[in-house]
């Protein structure tokens, strides 16, 4: 971590809070409650300090700074998850760039433009049913698809970042499409009618009425699907992703590992500390990443529902 990156992280960390505090300040609300998470964190920190001062033995954490900044090693004390963390997030980002625009575009087309009558309507219905089915296809099957088509036929390389990203992108697309469709469908038809009656075109109605109202729902669905993708292992095994890499990927064609792959590798290690301490630390890191993304999604949804009523 260079100083510049620390700066970027702190800025990102405090940015949403700053926007929130500013909005509340503008509307004249009390900002006292914003201190709540800091009170809890501060209380915990004081507790740790006091506990250390008592002289009783403290814990020996496996999940520490060393763990998230170093690669796998033969010695459990020196092993870490760094390349896998970078790999996982790299895959997520590439996947998001490709899968989310396609999914949201498909959802918009299916909900707003696709014909619902005649033989064309039946084709659309068939597509709908197929999307619902695809959402239930086991992930290992997507892995096979990724291996055969993306890795081999398109020659993107086995175990490369792009291959992993496209494979996982295909996996989450049906779920993202369905959740985005539901968000768009939840926009009352009366609002569309009102917009059309004002002489608005399809595009205006979509951009100024439908999408703004559906956005929180779409966002929730996409974040939840990110949470699903970050934990997927089977498709990565199928496309030949490495269980352990010693340096993080820096380009799209680099060989990549992901957090669940590395965890899977540790579970089969001979030294017991790998199977208990290091493994737990890896699982906790993965769970923290996934649960915080889900928490953000749920909180966005709750906020949205409050505004709706």
């Amino acid at each position: 971590m260079t100083p510049g990156l620390v700066l970027v992280f702190v800025l990102c960390l405090l940015f949403p809070l700053g926007v929130l505090a500013w909005r509340r300040f503008q509307s004249g609300e009390s900002n006292l409650g914003l201190a709540a998470p800091f009170l809890i964190i501060g209380g915990t920190a004081i507790g740790v300090l006091v506990a250390n001062a008592t002289g009783f033995a403290g814990p020996e954490p496996w999940l520490d700074w060393q763990f998230v900044t170093s690669a796998h090693s033969r010695h459990p004390e020196e092993a870490g998850l760094y390349p896998a963390i970078i790999g996982s997030f790299f895959i997520m980002m590439v996947m998001a760039v490709f899968a989310f625009p396609v999914s949201i575009g498909a959802a918009i087309y299916l909900e707003e433009y696709a014909p619902s009558t005649g033989w064309r309507g039946r084709v659309v219905q068939l597509i709908q049913v197929n999307i619902a089915n695809l959402a239930g296809v086991p992930s290992v099957v997507y892995g096979l698809l990724g291996l055969a088509i993306i890795a081999r036929a398109l020659r993107l390389g086995t175990g490369a970042v792009t291959t992993a990203a496209f494979t996982l992108g295909l996996l989450i697309m049906p779920i993202t499409i369905i959740s985005a469709q539901e968000a768009i469908r939840a926009v009352p038809d009366e609002h569309r009618q009102a917009s059309y009656a004002m002489g608005a075109s399809d595009w205006h109605t979509l951009r100024r009425v439908v999408l703004p109202e559906a956005l929180p729902g779409i966002l929730t669905g996409t974040i939840l699907s990110l949470g699903r993708a970050i934990g997927e292992t089977a498709p990565l095994i199928m496309i030949g992703a490495a269980t352990t890499v010693y340096s993080p990927p820096t380009t799209l064609n680099d060989s990549v590992s992901a957090m669940p792959m590395q965890i899977f590798a540790w579970a089969g290690e001979f030294i017991a500390d790998f199977r208990t301490g290091v493994l737990s630390a890896g699982v906790l890191t993965l769970l923290l990443a996934m649960l915080s993304m889900n928490a953000v999604a749920i909180l966005i949804r709750n906020r949205y529902e409050q505004e709706q009523t």
Binding site: P188, H191, A194, S195
Partner: peptide, 16 residues
Amino acid sequence: LRRQIGMVFQHPNPFP
């Protein structure tokens, strides 16, 4: 046409 013929609906439908 709709820009010259406005419409009000049965249920009040203001945008959010």
